[in-house]
Design a protein around this nucleic acid. Structure first.
Ligand SMILES: [Mn+2]
Ligand SMILES: [Mn+2]
Ligand SMILES: [Zn+2]
Ligand SMILES: [Zn+2]
Lengths: 178, 178
DNA sequence: ATAACTATTGAGAACTATTCTCAATTATAC
DNA sequence: GTATAATTGAGAATAGTTCTCAATAGTTAT
């Protein structure tokens, strides 16, 4: 049996409506995919999956819908360093609640974690206040992400794109590695 | 008088040499710009500035050099959500030491901050250990970034690209705003 | 239900930061 | 100096995302 949709249509629709915005099949399809097909999806992945359900969906519409959802706070958009934005539900029953990401800079595997989230949240709140007072920013969110090598990639010394260190360097020189 | 170069050529050169790598004028030019011209520079900005010094520098070379420096850990690369990677010195006299960023999602102003860095570092270290134990990742680095609206942008309700919330929504509809 | 209004859509073109290709150059070791 | 292979510049190529625009279809008022 198919996974159940649990994005709570009523709640979502209520949020989407407003400012003259409309509920459309394309938007439903995107929401459905996001709630059924796990998380950390790229726009392309959302597009492929949602197209099955709603065959003449356009890729541009997926981008537009994801942007809207993000702006509404229903979806969170993030980037793991592979030049493809990723999206996941930020609220509603299928959302995992507030969590952060551990990313493999080599294969781009993403792990959700909540360890120390309590402490983090506390520290973040204090930091936010300090930053607001000091710099006058109206703080809206934060990005916390650890990067490293997953067990598989750590095994054979992989090159990591982000913040890698000597010893893990890609060999960019010509010639065949004898 | 011009700002002094303070990227400590000896230290840098020592790091660059190795694995058969070479010191070249192009690499020097990039290093110089990075150490003299402040931080948070895009590749294009580095290119323009470095070209003045070394007129037939190629943009591709700048990208290659910045990637190398990043891999060597001399430079840190980050992204503020405007689809342009930014670079800054990570170590050496001109580096500001470990700090994090506060980013305006509207005008992309970047503020360095060190508030609570001590506490953050402590928490991060504990979290890293926990994550390593639990998921087997070899952790290499982290990204911590607050996003919000700078005083100027907060003034007139700007749209923020990342994690914005209702009330700050861009009006995407057609027609002229009466 | 019907009509009017206008937000939304799909298709493809356009955009743009970054990477790739390759012959020519040049830093380095001997 | 010579030999070797790393590096370079120029431009082409790539790829994720945004834009354009005529056509379509939610929504609201009638
Ligand atoms: Mn997640
Ligand atoms: Mn900085
Ligand atoms: Zn991996
Ligand atoms: Zn701003």
């Amino acid at each position: 049996m198919p996974k159940r949709k649990d994005h709570d249509p009523d709640c979502c629709c209520r949020k989407i409506r407003g400012q003259g915005r409309r509920i459309t099949p394309a938007r439903h399809a995107v929401l459905d995919v996001l709630s059924e097909r796990g998380e950390h999806l790229t726009a392309e992945e959302v597009f492929k999956a949602a197209s099955r359900r709603y065959p003449n969906l356009g890729l541009a519409t997926v981008y537009r819908t994801l942007e809207l959802m993000t702006d509404l706070g229903m979806v969170s958009k993030f980037d793991t360093g592979d030049d493809k934005a990723r999206y996941e539900f930020a609220e509603g029953p299928s959302a995992k609640g507030h969590h952060h990401h551990l990313v493999c800079t080599s294969c781009h595997k993403i792990v959700d974690y909540k360890d120390f989230i309590k402490e983090e949240t506390q520290l973040l709140r204090r930091t936010e206040q300090e930053l607001t007072k000091k710099y006058g920013f109206r703080i809206i969110g934060h990005v916390i992400q650890f990067c490293g090598l997953c067990p598989a990639c750590a095994g054979r010394g992989q090159k990591s794109g982000w913040g890698s260190r000597e010893g893990l360097l890609k060999d960019t020189r010509r010639g065949q590695s004898k």
